[in-house]
């Protein structure tokens, strides 16, 4: 199916954010801030843009989503659950003994997770390989790779950026969730990577930057543009807010990889209530 033209993205995003907070709270570990910053992007991808079918997760013609920032599994598992790839109840097993839902992405666990990640910087390369293979198979499916802005520190990202342009790979969309915060601090303090848009353009990519990563219409328009770029890879840089949706987590480096306490959890769920 080309997923859910009728899906209410606002309601979906709200449910996904609640799942994220509940999962990280339940495990008392996990990456909440970068999951909340990417929530709206994933909601639009799975709800409007990607060709996928939860009943046929191995369908060769499916579009692939590659989670390169592999620590943000809470949002990935939540969106997959909302799309029927796993039971929503299973989200409660996140990071717990015996679970399929490990702290960082593992290919095939559950179906719909297309790559193993956690060490940063590999997803763009992995996605590039997928698209090269699809091209050889004469498949018109797309590959979408979600990276963090802190992840741009990794040299391998730039190896992949160079190679994607060299091989004139299209149907290949990179997405940067530019929330401005990485593990220890603001990204600008850890390593200056800007201007990202100019760098990717210099590497041979079509780029759109400065898109509001929490405005569903703007996200959809930008991703639809990127999907249709031909002869080159395309990048959309979304400006996002780390911890989006929970006031005291927003733009707070303290909620990169920390779980909420009981009081914070209650407050967060209150803010995310319908």
């Amino acid at each position: 199916m080309v997923a859910g033209a009728g899906t209410d993205l606002r309601a979906l995003s709200r449910r996904v954010r609640r799942h994220v907070v509940e999962m990280v709270n339940g495990a008392q570990s996990g990456h909440i801030g970068g999951s909340l910053s990417a929530t709206d992007i994933l909601a639009v991808l799975y709800g409007r843009i990607m060709r996928h079918d939860p009943q046929r997760p191995d369908w060769p013609e499916r579009d692939r989503f590659i989670m390169s920032k592999g620590h943000c599994t809470p949002v990935q598992y939540a969106i997959l659950a909302e799309n029927g790839y796993l039971p929503v109840e299973e989200l409660a097993t996140f990071r717990k003994k015996g679970t399929r839902l490990q702290g960082h992405s593992v290919l095939g666990k559950p179906a719909g997770v297309e790559n193993s990640a956690g060490a940063l910087g590999m997803g763009l390369s992995f996605g590039l390989g997928i698209r090269l293979g699809m091209r050889l198979n004469q498949t018109d499916a797309h590959v979408y790779v979600l990276m963090g802005d802190g992840e741009q520190d990794e040299g391998q990202v730039w190896e992949a950026a160079m190679a994607a342009a060299h091989h004139e790979v299209d149907h290949f969309v990179a997405i940067i969730d530019r929330n401005g915060i990485q593990n220890d601090d603001f990204t600008a303090a850890q390593m200056r990577t800007e201007p990202l848009d100019e760098k990717y353009r210099a590497f041979g990519w079509e780029v759109r930057a400065g898109i509001d990563g929490h405005d569903h219409e703007a996200i959809e328009e930008a991703l639809a543009w990127a999907r249709d770029v031909r002869g080159k890879p395309a990048l959309v840089i979304f400006d996002t807010v780390k911890g989006k949706g929970v006031s005291f987590m927003e733009n707070n480096p303290g909620f990169h990889g920390a779980a909420p306490n009981a009081e914070q959890f209650a407050l967060a769920m209150q803010e995310l209530a319908d």
């Binding site: 060769p60 290919l107 297309e114 790559n115 590999m122 390369s125 992995f126 996605g127 590039l128 390989g129 997928i130 698209r131 090269l132 293979g133 699809m134 050889l136 198979n137 498949t139 040299g155 391998q156 190896e159 992949a160 160079m162 190679a163 060299h166």
Partner: peptide, 20 residues
Amino acid sequence: FGVAEQNMISAAGGLATTGH
């Protein structure tokens, strides 16, 4: 892949998922 082994190996993994 040019002189870029890290990209080459991750891309090889991705390529393999498409059946080759």
